[in-house]
Design a protein around this nucleic acid. Structure first.
Length: 593
DNA sequence: ATGACCACTTAGTAGGGAACTT
DNA sequence: AAGTTCCCTACTAAGTGGTCAT
């Protein structure tokens, strides 16, 4: 208690909390041995941090009188507060979430809290509310912005750039670094993923009074907006955030953080991959061990061994416990329930097939059938025996105990390192298998995409099928047919030319050569189109970006580009190149993960 | 042990703008 | 110039895993 109070006091006086520095020192002894820190500083993330604080969402701008809200068919002029919340709903009227009952109920309940007593008395049923004029108003506003004359657009762009210049950068240890999100989140209606019990709730406007500023003591402390104050100004150099507030839906912290291009973030990214590379050195031993443990007489040990097998083989997430009723019902490995597993003695012509079917992170469905070793199968049967569908599959296992075990196997090893390791090693291996040195540039890039996709599939990174997918696929098919016709035509012409040369003895070898070249060219184009179509089809439900950004050691890709003469721009966009700047300094063509 | 809390990484989506057609 | 497609980025939700108090 005393310590707590002291620490709080320290923070209030904007000093580096002593206790934190002390703790960090002991942690450092461990981490430096593991090669975590290179500067030899103890958990300290910066020495200097200066910034302007967050940029706040501009105040609410009332609707023009011409835009009406109707209740029960009659226009009602809403109070400012109630109108603002109404516009949040009207703005997203076209989105599917507004049709969900939970969303509507939560929204209506929170909206009513913003109404005056009078409004509350009048407006009692959401289905009598008509937001269509509000919705149209915002659609028109967007449209108006889109069709703005060139100079006006230019002006808006410049204003945005000015804002970016003023608020979008900080000074960290003498370097000007880009901030990731320099704006506070605007008020809005909470859009959880999947079946979220809180969808539709009002996310309130962030005020300076909610915001804690983190910066160095001797820096220019950011000014709060006129007439306002910060909640607190502190100087904690063991954390990387610049400002923080507590969001009112889940009561969790939101942070203003650095851009991924920053040195600090880059260094942390690098370390992540170095840990994964260390796993490469011990993974065989770990695999051998968990296979032995499948036979253990201890239930705990067997559950751990099977769970780890899933995490390793199927790249499952660890699956922390979640508070029931606060979030959507999703699971990971350790939180799998009996109802998520089906065992097939025989399926698809294979023995001992395990079928997993559950909602994972972001309520993305994981549905996979895999043949497993007999021992794994028998263990699963045992774990499921005499349990209800809603019971935990691994009832004797927690993520904490799993990670504790992993920590003993290798310094810095946690469950998520397996995902990183397996993702990166898969990319490297797939690139090796799929790339041919004498292929065209296009083919090489396509090979990369394939390798990337293999990882995305492994990690179950999915996306919604693009709305225009069918249409654009049809168009591509038409293009292919047209190209096919061209090829046929070119073939005929070539044959004709050959025949002419023979029969009439016409002496035009130049034209013959031209026709041959023509055929080759259209055939190549056809092949390219076909490859494109295959690629598109295989990719329609797969999200490649997540793996690329978070799981694939960029040094693998950089080395591959160098080895095969592929320009790096073909693989990484500008922001991605900035994000992976750390890797360019550390990878030559011989790099091996 | 257990749970609350915190800080950080990982995730999919909406919407805007660039690039390409018409 | 307008329409269309495609790619990128901003946004913010939802995970992981550590620490600390109880």
């Amino acid at each position: 208690m005393l310590l707590l109070w002291l620490r709080d006091l320290c923070r209030r006086f904007q000093q580096v909390p002593r206790r934190v520095t002390c703790c960090q020192a002991s942690r450092d002894a461990k981490t430096s041995r593991a090669g975590w820190e290179e500067k030899g500083t103890n958990g300290v993330k910066w020495r200097q941090l200066e910034h302007k604080g967050p940029y706040f969402t501009p105040a609410y701008e009332p609707l023009p009188d011409s835009v009406r809200f109707l209740y029960d068919g009659k226009p009602v002029k809403l109070s400012l507060a109630a109108e603002e919340v109404a516009t949040l709903y009207g703005k997203i009227l076209h989105l599917e979430c507004t049709t969900k009952e939970v969303f509507q109920r939560n929204f209506f309940s929170d909206w009513r809290k913003e109404m005056t007593a009078e409004e509350r008395k009048l407006i009692t049923h959401l289905d009598k509310c008509d937001f269509t004029e509000i919705h149209r108003h915002f659609v028109e506003r967007t449209e108006a912005r889109r069709t703005l004359p060139r100079e006006q657009k230019q002006k808006l762009k410049e204003e945005a750039a000015k804002l970016q210049q003023e608020f979008g950068y900080c000074i960290l240890d003498g370097h000007r670094e880009k901030i990731g999100n320099f704006k506070t989140e605007p008020p809005g209606l909470f859009r959880g993923r999947g079946d979220h019990p809180k969808m539709g709730m009002l996310k309130r406007r962030v005020m300076p009074e909610d915001v804690v500023i983190n910066c160095s003591r001797d820096s220019r402390i950011p000014e709060p907006p006129a007439g306002h104050q910060w909640k607190e100004v502190r100087s904690d150099n063991t954390v990387t955030w610049l400002a923080a507030w507590t969001e009112n839906i889940q009561n969790s912290s939101k942070y203003i953080i650095l851009n991924p291009s920053s040195k600090l973030k880059g260094e942390m990214d690098w370390q992540k991959y170095e840990v994964a590379r260390r796993l490469k050195g011990v993974v065989d031993k770990i695999r051998a061990q968990y296979q032995v443990d499948w036979r253990s007489p201890e239930m705990k040990k067997r559950q751990l061994a099977v769970a780890l097998y899933f995490i390793d083989k199927l790249a499952l997430r660890t699956g922390n416990e979640k508070e029931e009723g606060e979030t959507a019902d999703t699971v990971g490995c350790c939180s799998l329930r009996v109802e998520h597993v089906r065992l097939h003695e025989k399926a698809d012509g294979q023995k001992h097939v395990v079928e997993l079917d559950f909602l994972g992170k972001d309520s993305i469905r994981y549905n996979n059938r895999v043949p497993v070793e007999k021992l794994v199968f028998q263990n699963l049967q045992d774990f499921m025996k005499d349990k209800d569908p809603r019971d935990d599959l691994f009832d004797a296992l927690t993520t904490a105990s799993l990670n504790k075990h992993l920590q003993d196997l290798m310094e810095g090893l946690t469950a998520k390192v397996f995902r990183t390791y397996n993702a990166s090693i898969t990319l490297q291996e797939q690139l090796r298998v799929l790339t041919r040195a004498d292929d065209s540039l296009t083919s090489k890039v396509l090979a990369y995409k394939r390798a990337n996709r293999a990882v995305a599939v492994l990690c179950n990174h999915q996306r919604a099928i693009p709305k225009t997918f069918e249409k654009s696929m049809q168009k591509l098919q038409q293009k292919i047919e047209a190209k096919q016709a061209q090829v046929t035509e070119a073939q005929v012409e070539l044959e004709q030319a050959k025949a002419d040369l023979r029969t009439r003895g016409e002496n035009k070898p130049r034209s013959l050569l031209q026709k041959q070249r023509r055929l080759l060219k259209v055939e190549e184009q056809l092949a390219r189109l076909r490859a494109q179509a295959t690629d598109k089809e295989e990719n329609k439900q797969v999200a490649l970006g997540t793996a690329k950004l978070n799981y694939l050691d960029p040094r693998i890709s950089i080395a591959w580009c160098k080895r095969f003469g592929v320009p790096i721009e073909k693989i990484y966009s500008k922001t991605q190149r900035e994000r992976f700047a750390w890797a360019f300094e550390r990878a030559d063509e011989d790099f091996e993960f």
